[in-house]
């Protein structure tokens, strides 16, 4: 059915999406919490920064990252000083790019879920002498769980669907940066339509199932 290189591309895609979702759960949650709770004048600018990848063409992100991660860019200087080398054409380069690229898909649903909790449960917890950390972990997080589920699914799926950024900084290395979307592109470019069809069908079915799961789960999670 699928060739070894197709399976390798799928495996890599799943690994990338999984790692990115994990990282964003850790990085995105505090940002979402801050955005949901703050009255700071920075709320607007930070919220807009987080949402940028929703609007920016992937080519803009890819272009900036290629320069920033290169030997003359700030990220490139940093990674070379740390002895990691340069990030373009590496799996971790894709991870960094995807973290930027998928950030709003994690932050926004979680932020909405935190906002929906309202003040009251947190105030009640405070009157019961729960520390702010306890309140966060034992009141806010459980109440926001459906939001986390939505955010996790969306982040994972959006990373799977990434193409433009990967094409610009990936260098098309099998098993390292050649994700499924790039593999399909290569099949089409090489006029291998049969192979392209197979992998494209896999992606189509996967995407539909993810969204189906998301939308059929919705009614029960209204309260989040």
């Amino acid at each position: 059915m699928l060739s070894d290189s197709d399976l390798q591309a799928i495996g890599l895609t799943v690994r990338l999406a999984g790692v990115v979702t994990g990282i964003l759960l850790v990085l995105g949650t505090p940002i979402a919490w801050w955005l949901a709770r703050t009255r700071s004048k920075w709320k607007g600018p930070v919220g807009a920064m987080v949402a940028l990848p929703l609007v920016l063409p992937p080519s803009v992100l890819g272009f900036y990252l290629l320069l920033a991660m290169g030997p003359n860019g700030p990220i490139g200087h940093l990674t070379e000083a740390l002895g990691i080398g340069l990030l373009p054409f590496t799996f971790w380069g894709l991870v960094v790019a995807s973290v930027f690229y998928s950030l709003p898909f994690m932050v926004q649903p979680v932020q909405n879920a935190f906002e929906a909790i309202g003040e009251r449960p947190l105030e009640v917890a405070a009157t019961l002498r729960a520390s702010p950390l306890d309140t966060f972990f034992f009141v806010a997080l459980p109440l926001a769980l459906p939001g986390f589920l939505t955010a996790g699914i969306l982040t994972f799926a959006h990373t799977v669907g990434e193409f433009g950024v990967v094409l610009m900084i990936g260098g098309n290395l099998p098993g390292i940066t050649r994700v499924a979307s790039v593999q399909i592109y290569d099949h089409v470019e090489a006029l291998e339509y049969t192979e392209a069809h197979k992998l494209a069908a896999v992606m189509l079915i996967f995407s539909f199932l993810v969204l189906l799961g998301l939308y059929t789960r919705r009614p029960g999670s209204r309260r989040a």
Binding site: L66, L67, P71, N72, G76, F89, M168, G171, N172
Partner: peptide, 19 residues
């Protein structure tokens, strides 16, 4: 080796110093 999508992108990988 890293692979450019076309010859212009290949040149661009070198131009930016990434290769």
């Amino acid at each position: 080796l890293v692979y450019g999508e076309n010859i212009a992108q290949t040149a661009q990988f070198v131009q930016t110093g990434n290769a």
